[in-house]
């Protein structure tokens, strides 16, 4: 059974089409990259899958269940985890409390008024921090962590909901170079082990071609190419989209 299947979704803003007839799928344990130049509609597509936007047309299915109009909260309960372009964590809490908060919500415990939160699911949270290599940051305030660590913490938060599908919006943006590959290797391993499908957007082509099983190329709201990194790299349309009109090159000199 296909994990995520996006069926010809459209979205326009005030008459301007941001996504046109976009369709693709993501399988369990697969890493899929969504790339394209600025303004190609990556964020629009991403936010429709994450639940921040509703498509004008088309369907989004998760494990064959229609989630086209589901709220972000409903999607979370159905197994969608996500990270944001600018990492979103709870800055007033410690590292482990961030993960505990996600576990508390995942277990429908967020309205309890008596039991101290810091005693709940501490071991599970610790295990998740261990998984992303953040044990030493467990009791440090999130606001004092380096940005690369915040990104990893956010991954642990997203994993706390035991997602089937992980959405990562520019997972390495703002990170130092050496941290980027390490983070994506980690994601890759976790996705393999837990059979999680990963859909990510990314600007860093090294990250895309080094870690994606499949690549989707978006241009002016349409998918113009999809396939293995090798195929996409050699696609003339893609080269054109990124390199521009080759005639302009000859004209300029």
């Amino acid at each position: 059974m296909t994990l995520l299947s996006v069926e010809s979704i459209d979205k326009s803003f005030g008459g301007v089409a941001a996504a046109r007839d976009v369709g693709f799928s993501v399988e369990r344990g697969e890493m899929v990259a969504l790339i394209g130049p600025n303004g190609a509609g990556k964020s629009t597509v991403f936010n429709m899958i994450g639940g921040q936007l509703k498509p004008d047309r088309g369907r989004i299915l998760l494990d064959d269940a229609d989630i086209t109009t589901a709220s972000p909260q409903e999607r979370f309960r159905r197994g969608v985890g996500r990270t944001f372009q600018v990492a979103q964590t709870f800055l007033s809490m410690s590292g482990i409390e961030n993960v505990q908060m996600a576990l508390i919500s995942g277990h429908h415990q967020s309205r309890r008024l008596w039991q101290p939160a810091r005693t709940l699911y501490r071991e599970e949270a610790f295990a998740l921090l261990e998984c992303v290599g953040m044990v030493e940051a467990a009791d440090r305030p999130c606001s004092t962590l380096a940005y690369g660590d915040v990104k990893r913490l956010e991954l642990a938060i997203a994993l706390a909901g035991e997602p089937k599908l992980l959405l990562m919006d520019e997972p390495t943006a703002g990170m130092a170079l050496r941290e980027r590959a390490a983070l994506m290797d980690l994601v890759s391993t976790i996705a393999q082990d837990a059979k999680i499908g990963v859909l990510f957007t990314e600007h860093d082509m090294d990250v895309v071609f080094g870690h994606a099983d499949r690549v989707l190329v978006l241009l002016r709201g349409r998918i113009i190419a999809a396939g293995s990194p090798e195929d996409v790299r050699n696609d003339p349309q893609v080269r054109q989209a990124y390199l521009g009109d080759s005639h302009a090159l000859t004209r300029s000199v």
């Binding site: 908060m101 919500s105 967020s110 939160a117």
Partner: peptide, 14 residues
């Protein structure tokens, strides 16, 4: 200090 208070803070933070 309970989950409810943490949830309120969570929504305030992000």
């Amino acid at each position: 200090d309970a989950p409810f208070g943490y949830a309120l803070r969570a929504m305030r933070d992000s």
